[in-house]
């Protein structure tokens, strides 16, 4: 089943074209990897899907469908609730762990205290963070370690009850142990969610992505089952990138 369908997508920042005529389907409950060198349009793709590009005053043409429905027919708040985004550097909002996690749910609904507690704890459990922070829920979120902060950001997204979770190089600033923890979390969660994982680390895509797309200078070069992409790519440029010949 197709979760996100991207059709002839172009994205412009002023005069610079960040994405060039992209068409892609992302399946339900898969981890969809996106690789490519810097400035290849990977992050722009994510910002197009949840319409976050709008706050940068960028311009988009083409269509993106979520469950068959045009994202421009959805209220933007609702779209962003359903399609969560995790950034490369974990950014915790000022305030406690609890406040960070409850921020999203409170935007979309009013909750009783115990319902909200429930949400927070579920999200923290799902992000494999509960055991580490259960006694520090009211501490400032900025006191957590980098890896914990990134899992906090994942929990913050999970707490909104999203359908698609997009990650923009979520492990780029983390040590191998934290990276392993986050990858394990994703593999567990993919039963319930669809993941779009932008990564600089081709090995990471090879480890956990079901399918992978290779982007270069705003163009989609090729997309295939990860195994195929990483063993026998069709395009020479993909092969060069994976073998570390550029980028």
């Amino acid at each position: 089943m197709i979760k996100v369908a991207i059709q002839n997508l172009n994205l412009f920042y002023d005069t610079v074209q960040a994405l060039k005529n992209i068409s892609l389907d992302i399946q339900n409950n898969e981890i969809f990897g996106v690789i490519g060198p810097a400035n290849s349009g990977k992050s722009s793709l994510l910002r197009a899907i949840n319409r976050l590009y709008e706050i940068d005053y960028a311009r988009m043409t083409g269509r993106i469908l979520l469950d068959g429905e045009d994202i421009f027919n959805l209220p933007v708040n609702d779209l962003r609730r359903r399609v969560g985004l995790i950034f490369a550097t974990p950014v915790v909002l000022p305030g406690s762990v609890y406040k960070n996690i409850s921020y999203g749910p409170k935007l979309h609904n009013t909750f009783k205290k115990n319902e909200l507690d429930e949400r927070v704890s579920t999200a923290l459990h799902a992000a494999n963070l509960w055991d580490e922070v259960k006694d520090r829920l009211w501490d400032s979120a900025s006191t957590l370690s980098g890896g914990q902060q990134q899992r906090l950001c994942i929990a913050r997204t999970l707490a909104m009850d999203p359908e698609v979770i997009m990650m923009d190089e979520p492990c780029s600033g983390l040590d191998p142990v934290s990276t392993t923890k986050i990858e394990a979390t994703m593999l567990e969660l993919k039963k319930q969610y669809t993941f779009i994982l932008v990564t600089n680390n081709t090995k990471q895509a090879a480890r956990i992505a079901d399918r992978t797309a290779f982007f270069l200078s705003g163009e989609l070069i090729e997309v295939d089952i990860s195994k195929t992409i990483f063993t026998s790519p069709r395009d020479q440029r993909t092969d060069d990138y994976i073998r570390g010949r550029f980028g």
Partner: peptide, 8 residues
Amino acid sequence: EISYSLGG
């Protein structure tokens, strides 16, 4: 960005 991406 965080706030917007959470649907705010």
